[in-house]
Design a protein around this nucleic acid. Structure first.
Lengths: 338, 338
DNA sequence: CTGAAAGCGCTTACAG
DNA sequence: CTGAAAGCGCTTACAG
């Protein structure tokens, strides 16, 4: 809402003694302008503190100059999981270089989803980065059908999806975590998995199984407890695991938040970490370093993933449709817990 | 970026057999329209999946329909502090009810600040909620001078500022924390304060001192260590405190992130919590419940504060200029650490 | 290199 | 209650 007295291109042109068209060309950085005209316009714009009216520009260019980062989650998850702000900061870095504004949208209710679809179709954003889409969600396809460029954070649940995505190598990360426990001499390795309707939950569990198999270890059914990526869920899953698999001496927890809960459960059960049970988390969230003991975990380069997502989206917006998905490597971060 | 074939008000009007003006009135919910016309327009809009072009609307109404939540922080702080997402979710709740879109903006560099000022002056947002402004920052005043409605999260550093704000009662919260330690029998109470260039840091320290004074306790200089609101800072401040004030048996830490660091330092020093040292944090951040032991802390109703901020901003945008600032009460949450 | 002019899609007095 | 028309501020062929 510029003050009603906000300078227009017209007033800049008048002050510079040129036409509106010429003033517009200068401000758009067009080459076909004489140095004298350029000079005059720049100075006039400066003197008037001119900024271009975005609505007017958008009306003719059909570009809003902003893209949405859409988080499909209850707000509680949004703020308890460090993943989101990290993706955001990576995307933000790339977008702000291109003078594209990032709009964060949290979609918790069906009503909010509808509103967002309208918002996007109304031309408010030029594209969307979708984060944390659960199960077989139609949102990505809806947006695409409306002609809105979309990229996904994390591989899509629907394997037939053609929406480009950026994902960490969750399988390899889980394998590295398990191998670390094996290398440390753990004989009875269990896991607290993530929700099995989410690709990261699925993939990390698959990596867990695959690596134990590669080590010629059996995976008893009772060695696997399902969690929900929250601290409370990690705690209760770990309690269940300890009850039915008391010989447990190595634990892979599918994210750090659940691992924090696991540490509580182990402390409550009188098991020392890493003395009695070694624990490896996943994410390298901020709380990993702050935990007691500090968590050994699998780092996924979330900020970098955010950068990738932004670059992919900008490319698609610029018309380079067939952008390839990318899977980025993870890295084991050793701390005290394993 | 609607597909170029996106339906316009014109096409809806044609299909409904009325003028563009009438179609516009129906869609704007105006009362002065015949039921028959209303019916026809609604149906046409439905059939064409019409959504209004925001740029066109904004150009004439001079309203963008969105407001910014501006976080003035390095991105690291943004994602390590749970305060921001909580404010955001509260604000989001209010705004989405009013069909106003929230745009999150993180300002880490001078360049980004400039860009944002241009963005706001360009009419992209109708107002701004400013969070975590440090020291004597001119940004709020700049925006105001440009005619952009602004509200502040947290009381302004500059006491002469007239920008309306919403703040927790940090002084009272700190006093309650100290009183709790006193009630639990602590004799030697220290504190890890926040940065003293930030109002919450200042106010919580003031509350600490005030309450001990009210209890007729002396506050030796060595009982106060200054932190920076990070876990690492909390840890090293606590180490320093233990070194110079070994009789410490009660500790008030000015936020939960630092309290997590304090727990690490105490564990490393072989001090049990709450056996040897009782610890009270501030914020009731998600990690408070996940800590070992779970943290007793002072809850500030951040989500509610976010709601307040959004309501105040909307009121100002709607022309109700002289909106009063509000200070909301805090609440002690007892867990295991004290 | 430059200007006159059309047009983006909406809202809103102004008549009737 | 309804329509014709002006106008929001910009961009962009089209001439020159």
């Amino acid at each position: 809402m510029p003050a009603s007295s906000a300078p227009t291109l017209e007033s800049v042109a008048a002050r510079a003694g040129v036409s509106r068209a010429t003033a517009g060309r200068v401000l758009a950085g067009s080459a076909r302008v004489s140095p004298a005209a350029r000079e005059a316009v720049m100075q006039a714009a400066q003197e008037l503190s001119y900024v271009t009216n975005q609505a007017a520009r958008a009306l003719v260019t059909r570009r809003s100059g902003s893209v949405a980062l859409v988080v499909v989650e209850p707000v509680e998850r949004f703020f308890s999981d460090s993943y989101f702000p990290l993706v955001l900061s990576g995307a933000q870095a790339v977008l702000s270089e291109r003078e594209v504004q990032l709009v964060l949208v949290v979609l918790s209710t069906p009503r909010e989803r509808e509103r967002f679809e309208r918002y996007a179709r109304g031309g408010h954003v030029d594209g969307a980065i979708l984060v944390s889409v659960h199960g077989p969600d139609p949102l990505p396809q809806h947006l695409r059908d409306a002609g809105i460029p979309v990229v996904l954070s994390g591989r899509p649940y629907d394997l037939a999806s053609t929406v480009p995505f950026v994902s960490a190598d969750n399988v390899a990360g889980a394998r590295a975590a398990v191998q670390h426990l094996v290398d440390r001499g753990c004989r009875h390795i269990g896991t607290v998995s993530g929700p099995l309707d989410m690709p990261p939950g699925q993939d990390r569990l698959e990596g867990f199984r695959a690596q134990l198999r590669a080590c010629r270890r059996r995976v008893p059914a009772r060695a696997v407890a399902t969690g929900d990526f929250t601290a409370a869920g990690g705690r209760s899953a770990t309690e269940a695991l300890l009850a039915r698999y008391p010989e447990l001496d190595g634990l892979f927890v599918a994210n750090d938040l659940m691992a924090a809960g696991a540490l509580q459960a182990l402390a409550a059960a009188g098991r020392s970490v890493p003395g009695d049970v070694r624990v490896v988390g996943f994410d390298d969230a901020p709380l990993a370093g702050a935990a007691v003991p500090p968590l050994t975990t699998v780092r996924q380069p979330v900020v970098e993933m955010g950068r990738h997502l932004a670059r992919m989206l900008l490319a698609i917006i610029d018309g380079a449709e067939p952008e390839a998905s990318v899977v980025v490597p993870t890295e084991l971060v050793e701390r005290a817990s394993a």
